[in-house]
C-alpha cells in the first residue's frame, strides 16, 4: 500500500511540475467569459443556464484532462526507462499500475473540486444564488473521468501515445453518441441477431451519457442519491474491468 501511495504522490507531483493544475485558472476564465453571454431571463432561468453550461464545460475540461494525464503516464516512463529503477525496488507491477491510476484520479479530483468551487462562487457573485447542487454534477464528471482514465491506462500498456489519444476520443464519442443510438434501436425493436447484437453492444459499452447531469442539475433538483449510487457502482465496474485488463497485459510485458 505504501508503494502505491508513493507512486501516486509522484504522479501528482509530476502533474504539478508540468503545471497541469493551472487549468483551474483557465477554467475560471472560461466560465467568467461565458457568463455575460447569458440571455436576460429571470434570475432562476439564468442560474439554471449558468449551471448547465458550466457543468458541460467541467465535463469537457475533465475528460480532456483525464486523457492527457493518463495516456503518457506509463509509456513516458518506459521510454525514459525510469521504470527500470522503480521496478528494481520491491515494487510489484500491480502496485505500480494502481499507484499510477490513483495518482491520476487524485489529481483530477483536486482539479474538479476547485472547478466546482469556482462555479459555485461565480454563480453566487453574479446572481447571489448558492448552488451546492453543482457538486452532484461535478461528481458525475469525476466518475466519467475515472472510466476514461482507466480506459486510457489500459490502452497505454500496449498502444503508443498518439494511438491511445485517438482511441480515447473515439471511445468517448462512441460511448456518448452510439449508446443513445443503440437505445433508440432497442426501443424501436430490432429483430433476431441484430437485436442480440444491439443489446450486447448497448450493455458492453459504458453508457457515458448517463454521467451527464447537466439537465437534472441544471434545471431540476438533481439526480438523487439512489441514482448517484448506481452511477458510482456502474463506473466502478468499468474501472475494475479496464484495470484488470491493463494488469493482464502489463504483468508479463517486456519493458
Amino acid at each position: 500500500m505504501k508503494n502505491v501511495l508513493s507512486i501516486a504522490v509522484n504522479v501528482i507531483k509530476d502533474a504539478a511540475r508540468k503545471k497541469v493544475f493551472y487549468v483551474v485558472f483557465l477554467f475560471g476564465l472560461a466560465i467568467v467569459a461565458l457568463s455575460p453571454l447569458l440571455p436576460t431571463f429571470d434570475l432562476g432561468a439564468r442560474a439554471q443556464f449558468l449551471r448547465d453550461i458550466s457543468l458541460s464545460l467541467t465535463s469537457l475540461f475533465g475528460v480532456v484532462l483525464a486523457v492527457i494525464l493518463s495516456v503518457s503516464q506509463i509509456p513516458g516512463e518506459v521510454e525514459r526507462r525510469t521504470i527500470y529503477n522503480i521496478l528494481s525496488k520491491p515494487v510489484s507491477r500491480l502496485q505500480y499500475l494502481v499507484g499510477k491510476y490513483l495518482g491520476i484520479m487524485v489529481s483530477i479530483a483536486a482539479i474538479l473540486l476547485v472547478m466546482g468551487l469556482e462555479i459555485v462562487l461565480l454563480i453566487f457573485i453574479r446572481l447571489h444564488v448558492f448552488t451546492p447542487l453543482i457538486f452532484e454534477g461535478v461528481f458525475a464528471v469525476f466518475l466519467e473521468c475515472a472510466v476514461i482514465a482507466a480506459f486510457c491506462v489500459m490502452l497505454s500498456t500496449f498502444a503508443t501515445v498518439p494511438v491511445n489519444a485517438f482511441a480515447a476520443v473515439l471511445f468517448y464519442l462512441v460511448c456518448h453518441v452510439k449508446t443513445g443510438f443503440l437505445h433508440q434501436k432497442l426501443v424501436e425493436g430490432a429483430f433476431g441477431v441484430g437485436k442480440v447484437f444491439t443489446w450486447a453492444l448497448y450493455y458492453v459499452i459504458p453508457n457515458l451519457e448517463d454521467f451527464n447531469l447537466s439537465q437534472p442539475v441544471g434545471y431540476g433538483g438533481g439526480a438523487g442519491a439512489a441514482y448517484m449510487l448506481r452511477l458510482t457502482a456502474y463506473a466502478l465496474l468499468f474501472v475494475v474491468i479496464f484495470m484488470v485488463a491493463a494488469y493482464l497485459v502489463f504483468r508479463s510485458k517486456d519493458l
Binding site: 505504501k2 508503494n3 508513493s6 509522484n10 509530476d14 511540475r17 525514459r80 526507462r81 525510469t82 521504470i83 527500470y84 529503477n85 522503480i86 528494481s88 525496488k89 520491491p90 515494487v91
Partner: peptide, 28 residues
C-alpha cells in the same frame, strides 16, 4: 537488492536528496 542501471534512468527533476528519499521509500 541494490541496482545501478546502465544509464542514469532516474527522475531528473528531483534533487539528489529528494531522489534518494523517493527511492528509499520504496524499500519501506
Amino acid at each position: 537488492l541494490g541496482f545501478l542501471p546502465e544509464q542514469p534512468y532516474f527522475y531528473n527533476f528531483l534533487t539528489a536528496e529528494k531522489g534518494l528519499v523517493l527511492y528509499g521509500k520504496f524499500f519501506g
